[in-house]
Write a protein that binds this DNA or RNA. Structure first.
Length: 941
DNA sequence: AACTTCACG
DNA sequence: GACGTACGTGAAGTTC
């Protein structure tokens, strides 16, 4: 039938259907192979319901489901930031997209998409054609971007709310008739699609203006007449941006399509084809319903005996084979390896683990690789086992019966890089780096350590032994049994292949079993998004940073070390003389005895071990006793000096040099993703997150961190990110405004608290306000603040009371957070990260700790989430620049950049960092990033 | 291995 | 009414 008068065309927005199905449904997986299938299931059910509902007097005569194709459209050519805020498609959803196309075809509904155009443009084109042909058109969608099409026989239908959207509804939403919707959208912009619009003008104002002036061009031409100065200026200054926005929101109803409306005529589905598809997807209920409807016999359900427990909701109830080290295979030739890799291909996943000669990934030599396909079925590939002493004479020999390393890697590479095969590991960053050094970029990955971290942070550690014990009730073979411990420890290449097989294959076996258990549980714990957007994508990013390393000038450190040694010797001498006897200045015990027993300083406090406390705060108090005990005061002052230098020397100038990699001449730290409960990273071997900066002498250590020839070190750091997040989550209007105005936040707080005008602010008042601001982040207490500010406790309490009075949101936030923690036993960041607080119900001092930790975690955690998001986006954004991201220090990112690209790097990285919360969270406070550059970290900071 | 101290955000 | 306390880390050195 030719489309024309009396015909009714339904246009279904396929992408909206898919996303709704994905988010509305629990994460189903196909039983036979674990393929995520929830969105396809929901999509099919919606199509089926749609078909059933659409049979009536108002039935469509023609219908099509319209999809988006690819992500690059002509709009990206107009404006490169178009939809730049969009989150990546969830990993679980990606493989389901082609299946929804198949589903549409199986239902025998026309299925259309066009590269370079969004679904909305195709819908616009078809709607226009339908209207022009004199028929009726209904767009099944509630997307506001489609509302411009309404009118003249075209209407929309919100399938979710079961509600028609006609001219009236559009007017209610936009304040203008449909044909002027694009003018309003051009002004108002859209943060979701990153349409800039006119800053400061929302839908309400836009509608007002359009109604007053008639249309956008008239408005822009006569903008000078507008009374409000700010509005007038925006419209004049941003006219081009507004016109661009209009282009972006205007749907193209002239897309070149290769079919006609007549091709979209409704067709009955072919029962066999439809049932074949539904059955293949293993949708039992829907298959049965379709069979009933057509009076056909449902096809036999597919064989699901080989159920991977992982994907079953009752995973724990399914009997797993016991651990049996004798059952593991040792792969010694290419034929056997190929067989295992084929199994991995067939399954679509494989657990992988590497054995090496060192925990330092930059120096470790690959000794073997283990694989596991399913619980109990694991293998080890020995590749670099040696025998004999490798000591004085270097007489180590390669053990027989091993595959050649390169031959094995050649076979492994296509599997490890195959986008259709998931590589599962425990702490994958380690293995990722090992393989990367052999030219293999492992992807895609899952990491059981990070799954555990996302689900259980605050409850327990995430190491494999702990997880195996807790979740599999199995104690793995301790590594000590193979390599020993202490000074007799051997490297893994010296371990017998048979023993190594039992140990290494077991690790892969454990990892796979943990994965099977954790995968479905991620959804139940509601941390899938956290895992997929904040944990897992960090693995390759951090691996690259760590492998890049940072150049450290050992000569600079050596020089400083020598100077420190001299100064220390001098101080030790002096200290011995004051004390009347030489003693180990580095021994807090000896120092305490001399100070408090021999020299008679009053008020020494013993800790739980019976030793006097001699921390810096105690010694500082002693230095003030010039009148009562001048000798002790002098001694304490010298010890404080000695301690500072001793620390700098041992931890920084000396230890740091030992971490310079002989091959690269650079220092390669290792970040622990699951190191801190709050979501912060931890840096180890060496820790590059605590390089001195607060003291003048210490800061000079940073002069040794330099850029390579022709490059600069660039540092970008978030300004006051935790306070900004606090202002947002605790809803503190005064603080929010202060940030919006770009004020000195501590001065502004002081002004608010002590009624001192900003112009009359003194450093002392500001310092106190600063201490309180930080105190609030830490879960303030009168005692803690008093100690920090060295003021009487009552006075500190007075400050806090006043702070609560002036910023009532703070108390509300603190109370609400503690209440939440008590009820749920966890707290949550803005981005959904959960930090468990099991101690919150404890009695005694532990309760106080838990309370403060609960108050702090969402703030520290959200800040950590923000910088993680920035780091994850960064590589893609700076790809085109001669620059590398090297280090992260909680609120700071450090880059090494070619001289000529410094300015551009700063611009790009700043943009990424300042917008990192979006689009997941729209903060009510701007994020601001400060930048510095120079030849060294000292100059850049 | 536990404890103390101190470097950072 | 007393308890004890700022939040989150890692490393080095001493002591047991």
């Amino acid at each position: 039938m030719a489309f024309g008068k009396g015909c009714h065309l339904h246009l279904i927005d396929g992408s909206a259907f898919i996303f709704r199905a994905y988010h509305a449904l629990p994460p189903l997986t196909r039983k036979s192979d674990g393929l995520p299938i929830g969105a396809v299931s929901g999509f099919c059910n919606m199509l089926w319901k749609y078909i059933e509902d659409a049979k009536g007097s108002d039935a469509p005569t023609h219908a099509a489901v319209i999809f988006d194709k690819g992500s690059h459209t002509f709009r990206n050519d107009l404006y490169d930031l178009y939809k730049a805020n969009r989150e990546e498609m969830p990993e679980e959803l990606r493989p389901q997209i082609p299946l929804t196309r198949e589903a549409t075809k199986a239902f025998n509904i026309a299925c259309e998409e066009l590269a370079g155009y969004e679904a909305d443009d195709i819908i616009a084109t078809l709607a226009r054609q339908g209207r022009e042909a004199g028929g009726r058109v209904t767009i099944i969608s509630s997307d506001k971007d489609l509302m411009q099409l309404v009118g003249g026989g075209v209407e929309m239908f919100d399938a979710m709310k079961n509600r028609a959207i006609g001219v009236e509804e559009v007017e209610a939403k936009f304040g203008v008739p449909p044909e002027k919707v694009i003018d309003v959208q051009a002004l108002a912009g859209d943060s979701v699609d990153n349409i800039p619009g006119a800053p400061g003008i929302g839908v309400k104002t836009a509608a007002l203006l359009i109604n007053e002036f008639g249309d956008l061009e008239t408005l822009l031409a006569r903008a000078g007449e507008i009374k409000q100065p700010k509005r007038r200026e925006t419209l004049i200054e941003k006219a081009e941006q507004i016109r661009l926005s209009k282009q972006l929101v205007t749907l193209d109803d002239q897309t070149p399509i290769e079919f006609t409306l007549d091709d979209l005529e409704i067709r009955e589905p072919n029962p066999e084809e439809l049932m074949e598809f539904l059955n293949r997807m293993e949708f039992r209920t829907l298959t049965r319903r379709v069979a009933e409807k057509f009076g056909a016999e449902p096809p036999p359900a597919p064989e699901v005996s080989d159920v991977p427990a992982s994907h079953d909701a009752q995973a724990q109830d399914i009997e797993q084979p016991p651990f049996n080290p004798d059952s593991y295979t040792c792969i010694r030739d290419a034929g056997e390896l190929a067989k295992w890799l084929d199994e991995a291909r067939a399954k679509g996943w494989v657990a992988v683990d590497t054995e090496t000669t060192s925990l330092d990934e930059m120096q470790a030599e690959l000794v073997g690789v283990s694989l596991c396909i399913e619980a109990g079925k694991a293998a080890y590939i020995p590749l670099g086992h040696t025998s004999g002493g490798d000591d004085l004479f270097g007489g180590s020999e390669r053990v027989a019966g091993q595959m050649d390393l390169d031959e094995a890697l050649k076979l492994l590479k296509p599997v490890l890089e195959d986008p259709a095969i998931l590589k599962i590991g425990q702490n994958m960053k380690y293995d990722f780096k090992i393989f990367a050094r052999h030219g293999i970029r492992v992807a895609p990955i899952d990491d059981t350590m990070l799954m555990s971290y996302a689900m259980f942070s605050g409850l327990h550690g995430h190491g494999m032994d702990a997880l195996s014990d807790r979740y599999l009730n199995h104690q793995p073979i301790p590594i000590k049994e193979l390599i020993g411990s202490g000074k007799n420890q051997i490297t893994f290449d010296k371990v017998e292949v048979e023993k190594a097989t039992r140990y290494a294959a077991e690790d892969a076996d454990i990892t796979l079993r943990l994965w099977q258990m954790f995968k479905p549980r991620l959804h139940r714990e509601q941390v899938t998004t956290v895992y997929e957007t904040l944990e897992r994508p960090l693995v390759p990013v951090l691996a690259d940073m760590e492998m890049a390393g940072v150049k450290v000038e050992t000569a600079v450190l050596s020089r400083m070390s020598n100077a420190f040694a001299q100064k220390m010797a001098q101080l030790e001498d002096e200290i011995g003389q004051i004390a009347g006897q030489p003693f180990n200045v580095g021994s807090p015990k000896q120092l305490g005895e001399i100070l408090f027993d021999t020299m008679g300083v009053e008020g020494g406090k013993k800790g739980k071990t019976g030793a006097y406390g001699t921390g810096a705060d105690v010694l500082e108090d002693v230095t003030t006793m010039e009148d009562t005990n001048p000798q002790a005061a002098k001694l304490a002052a010298r010890v404080l000096d000695w301690r500072q230098i001793s620390k700098l020397k041992s931890t920084y100038t000396d230890a740091l040099q030992t971490h310079v990699n002989p091959e690269t001449g650079r220092v390669h730290t290792s970040y622990v993703i699951s190191g801190a409960n709050t979501g912060r990273l931890a840096s180890t071997d060496p820790n590059l997150q605590n390089i001195p900066v607060r003291s003048e002498e210490g800061r000079r250590i940073r002069e040794a961190f330099v850029a390579r020839e022709g490059c600069k070190i660039v540092s970008l750091d978030y300004s006051q990110i935790e306070l900004r997040i606090l202002a947002h989550v605790a809803d503190l209007p005064e603080m929010r405004e202060a940030f919006k105005e770009g004020l000195d936040i501590h001065a502004a707080t002081a002004s608010e608290m002590f009624d001192v005008p900003l112009e009359q602010m003194t450093p002392e008042i500001r310092r106190q306000a600063k201490a309180i601001n930080f105190g609030v982040i830490y879960g303030i207490s009168g005692f803690g603040l008093a100690r920090n500010l060295r003021i009487p406790r009552a006075e500190a309490q007075g400050f806090i009371d006043r702070y609560f009075e002036r910023f009532p949101g703070i108390r509300r936030y603190m109370d609400a957070t503690v209440e939440f923690a008590k009820e749920h036993k966890y707290v949550e960041t803005l981005f959904g990260r959960r930090i468990h607080t099991p101690e919150i119900t404890a009695k005694g001092p532990a309760a106080g700790f838990a309370k403060r930790a609960a108050i702090n975690a969402p703030i520290q955690g959200a800040a950590a989430d923000v910088i993680r998001r920035a780091m994850i986006r960064m590589p893609g954004e700076i790809m085109h620049l001669p620059a590398a991201m090297l280090l992260q220090v909680h609120d700071e990112l450090i880059f090494e950049v070619a001289d000529h690209a410094v300015d551009e790097l700063i611009a790009v990285a700043r943009r990424v960092m300042e917008s990192a919360a979006e689009p997941a969270v729209k903060l009510s406070v701007p994020l601001i990033v400060d930048a510095g550059q120079g030849a060294s970290w000292a100059e850049a900071h």
